[in-house]
């Protein structure tokens, strides 16, 4: 069974159609990179997977999206519950103005009451997974706003991991970071793929090539090409893909 399947998904914002019959499949423990020019619908597609678009007035979709074989837009699905299984990391670090500890614990406190000792355990575990533990373990009570940008972004990853999602969505997670922090996050993604399935939007084609197993190229709301990353960059089948990756675009 695929981890994620999209079947002929179209999306509208009001009258504006943002996606045209997009279909793709992603296997468990793989990293899917979404690339394409600005405004082509990458974020729209990503946000479909945890129903974040539900908040946008005028949003409408057709088609089916299955996660673990289940239609996430079926009427009986609770989007809140879904989002606890599908974590998300944004373009800019979004630490809450609380302590580091409370940031990571935020998602845990939303769910069934865990004991404080359990929460502490899972906070530590998440921070370790996000490769941040060693840097912050001595001042967990410090405000998260005092961390550097790269640390903040890893904190946001830890925060998402703490609720133990099985699918992790990242929307240009390194675009606001310096090269060293970017490298750290890429390394982290590499680690995480052992346990998680990851969908990541990126504008940086080298990054897509470095970290992903599968790459999907969007253009004007259409999925132009989706294949193994190795093939994608060495042997694109579609002329538009070729034009894009060789930088002769637009």
């Amino acid at each position: 069974m695929y981890k994620v399947e999209a079947h002929a998904v179209s999306v509208w914002y009001g009258d504006h159609q943002a996606l045209y019959k997009v279909s793709l499949q992603l296997e468990r423990n793989q990293v899917l990179a979404l690339i394409g020019p600005s405004g082509c619908g990458k974020s729209t597609f990503l946000r479909l997977l945890n129903r974040m678009n539900d908040f946008i007035p005028g949003f409408r979709m057709e088609g089916k999206i299955l996660i673990d074989g289940e239609d996430i837009y079926a009427p009986h699905v609770d989007p809140v519950h879904l989002r606890r299984r599908v974590g998300m990391v944004f373009q800019k670090p979004t630490p809450f103005p609380f302590s580091i500890y409370e940031n990571v614990a935020y998602g845990l406190r939303l769910q069934n009451r865990l004991k404080e000792s359990q929460i502490r355990e899972r906070v530590e575990q998440a921070l370790r997974q996000a490769a941040l533990w060693d840097e912050v373990k001595d001042n967990l009570k410090k405000s998260a706003l005092a961390l550097s940008g790269g640390q903040q972004q890893r904190l946001c990853i830890a925060r998402a991991l703490a609720v133990r999602p099985s699918l992790l969505l990242m929307d240009e997670p390194t675009s606001a970071l310096d090269p060293i922090s970017t490298a750290k996050i890429e390394e982290l993604i590499h680690e995480l793929r052992q346990t998680y399935t990851i969908v990541i939007v990126t504008h940086n084609m080298q990054q897509a090539a470095r970290i992903s197993d599968v790459t999907a190229f969007f253009h004007m709301g259409r999925l132009i090409e989706c294949s193994r990353t190795k093939d994608f960059f060495t042997n694109p089948t579609h002329p538009e893909t070729l034009r894009y990756i060789t930088g002769r675009f637009g």
Binding site: I67, D68, E70, I72, P75, H76, V77, D78, P79, V80, H81, L82, R85
Partner: peptide
């Protein structure tokens, strides 16, 4: 798994 299976989301 994703949802409490097969009935409406909690109120």
């Amino acid at each position: 798994m994703l949802s409490s299976p097969r009935h409406a989301p909690p109120k």
